[in-house]
Amino acid sequence: MSRGLSLIALLLLAVVSFGLYQLSYEVQRLEEELIELNRALSQERETIGVLQAEWSYLSRPDYLQDKAQRLLEMRSTTAKDIVAIEALPWRQDRGTPNSQQPAPAVTAPALPPMAAAPVPVPAQPVAAVTAAPASSMQVAAKPAAEAPAAFDAEVAAVLGAMQRGNDKPRRAQ
């Protein structure tokens, strides 16, 4: 009886110590993995930080303004470029609104806007809505009628310069 107990105890001791060592090694391995992951994470974050700074640098308003004006023939948004959807007239080929629904006040074409009664929002979708978005770049496209080859060449030159990555601006020193 006592001898059996002792044997079991001995066996248990062996199993437990084996398990303990296994566990300990496993923990060690996992910790190393964690450290490795943390290092990779930290590196990725550093890279993100660099890219964010670079993005911020490349989207400087004065830089964008210069490029937009010289290469894209854009100009600043004016009040005339912004139209409220309610102020858009009905499309002519859809028939007069009178024939479809009784919506007065929008039929007369050239009323001074403020004089007109508040224009009701049409129940039916207005076709061809082209509200100019107040974009963050504060530029609205001007119809570029002519797109000369010189313009394309200039764009290509700028793109090339950007790809070559002139580091001049990094202000590291």
Binding site: A79, K80, I82, V83, A84, E86, A87, P112, P113, M114, A116, P118, V119
Partner: peptide, 15 residues
């Protein structure tokens, strides 16, 4: 109408 009125194309009461 004002003499120098510029035809504006906007009504923005709701806005």
């Amino acid at each position: 109408p004002v003499a120098n009125a510029v035809p504006a194309n906007v009504t923005v009461k709701t806005q």
